[in-house]
Design a protein around this nucleic acid. Structure first.
Lengths: 84, 84
DNA sequence: AAAGTAATTAGATATTTGCCTAACTACAGA
DNA sequence: TCTGTAGTTAGGCAAATATCTAATTACTTT
């Protein structure tokens, strides 16, 4: 829960999730959409992975990141308790 | 959106919201539930108010905090886009 | 008017965060 | 095997965050 909210508490990381909503992408493809250095992007992706919001899959030289939506249920559930 | 996720990114503040889910409470009543100093509690409440997650109402010497659930729709909406 | 209570504001400090450059690892192709 | 490419890891720095104590504001009560 902590790692989840932490990961979501950054506009760049939220934009990354939106990007991955369309389709899985490699770290490099993701990086192209932002003005930050590759290490910074890598760090953001690491936080998303720590929160289990994305999974990573290495294929040869490329690492593909895929959105993991199931973990969002935890946040949704927590938020929905307030809507009743 | 930023202020919202920022406010939610802290276990103490999330616990405060859960407390207020039951009923409105004064700053002092809220403080009783935590081991932090009053200024620290006050600061957390301020962040919740900045995110519009709570409203405050001064009655004499007391300030009562009330949960504002409507603003959660924004977060819920953002999260739900990933569930489709 | 003085003292007490509720809460905030101010100021200081330690930790965490987000960013960078430089260095490194791993794979691919000539 | 050498060179290039994809990506991460390491190390450093500035800004933001969470906490505290001390001081202040506003109200209540005697």
């Amino acid at each position: 829960m902590n790692a989840l909210f932490k990961a979501l508490n950054d506009p760049t990381r939220r934009a990354m999730l939106e990007l991955l909503r369309e389709q899985p992408r490699t770290a490099g493809e993701i990086a192209e959409h932002f003005a930050f250095s590759k290490p910074t992007i890598s760090h953001h992706l690491d936080l998303l992975r720590q929160a289990d919001l994305v999974t990573s899959d290495k294929q040869g030289q490329f690492i593909t990141y895929t959105l993991n939506m199931t973990v969002l249920d935890e946040v949704l559930g927590w938020l929905l308790q307030f809507k009743s």
